[in-house]
Design a protein around this nucleic acid. Sequence first.
DNA 1: ACATTGAGGACCATTCTAGTCCCCATTAAA
DNA 2: TTTAATGGGGACTAGAATGGTCCTCAATGT
Lengths: 155, 155
Amino acid sequence: MLRLSKMSDYAAVVMAHIARYPEQAHAAAELSEAVGVPRPTVSKTLKMLMHAGLLQSRRGAQGGYRLTRTPIEISVSEIIEAIEGPVAMTECSQAEGECGLAATCGVADNWQRVSMAIRQFLDSVTLADLAQKTPIKMPVMLPIQSVSLASISDA
Amino acid sequence: MLRLSKMSDYAAVVMAHIARYPEQAHAAAELSEAVGVPRPTVSKTLKMLMHAGLLQSRRGAQGGYRLTRTPIEISVSEIIEAIEGPVAMTECSQAEGECGLAATCGVADNWQRVSMAIRQFLDSVTLADLAQKTPIKMPVMLPIQSVSLASISDA
DNA sequence: ACATTGAGGACCATTCTAGTCCCCATTAAA
DNA sequence: TTTAATGGGGACTAGAATGGTCCTCAATGT
């Protein structure tokens, strides 16, 4: 896993499409066609993105959706969260305590750290990155073992 | 999302438990109790981990499960994959082409790169990291924008 | 007025998930 | 050699999540 639902996938594609023409208002029908996803489904996605505050809408003729911020100011994690709720790998890494297993598992702490790292990474990728034609570059991902223990002190 | 199924969660906890006493054989019943998860469910998890080659089993009295490798040699991504199959964020980032939307989406490439980065990160976290009591340190996660474009050249 | 376009929410079908159970094979120990 | 412990394999089920559809109402530009 680390699977992303299809809806999130659509969301990313739709957002990227809008990001390429940020000035225009994009109607659901237009986006549906551009992206090749049935209208009602795109609509649903758009509504979710709107509720999350990533899009603003205007009804009526010439209406449609626009970004509320510039593509650089929107992170991939925000898009994902708009659709799926808080990004976390496991139950215990999102809810406070009450994991049930917490006492016995002895992994919670480290699990949460892993989750956090991924989360931070996703924060750093922007919609602009996604939308651009030339492939984005991967961030430097140092193997966890090679990190000097002092670099991020907690423990 | 980036949600991990409960099964994967169990798997991680169980593996960590075994990793703390690598010499002994651990019976399903023992693990079930240690971890607080019903026996049949733990069993199922163990079977999956075995099929993936992360555990070896011995039947009969005094039997049970052991690691096939040392905790340092087992990565978190392997554990996850043992349960959920290939780790990938989206359909198109795992299957070759034929995403259907590929033509229109224009995001596939970048999406795959994001997925790859996470994947690599998960590769770098080991079972030993998970199992240790003192919290593991986070790897350095440079914001994607700050990475010099030359550092990983493709495009 | 009227055509366009989104809002809101009900609804359904299918898949996935978690979890259970049963019976057989293997192995150690009594 | 019998017995008890232990995993192997797989079928099965209930419930939830997912993806997707549809309908009616509200807003807004022409």
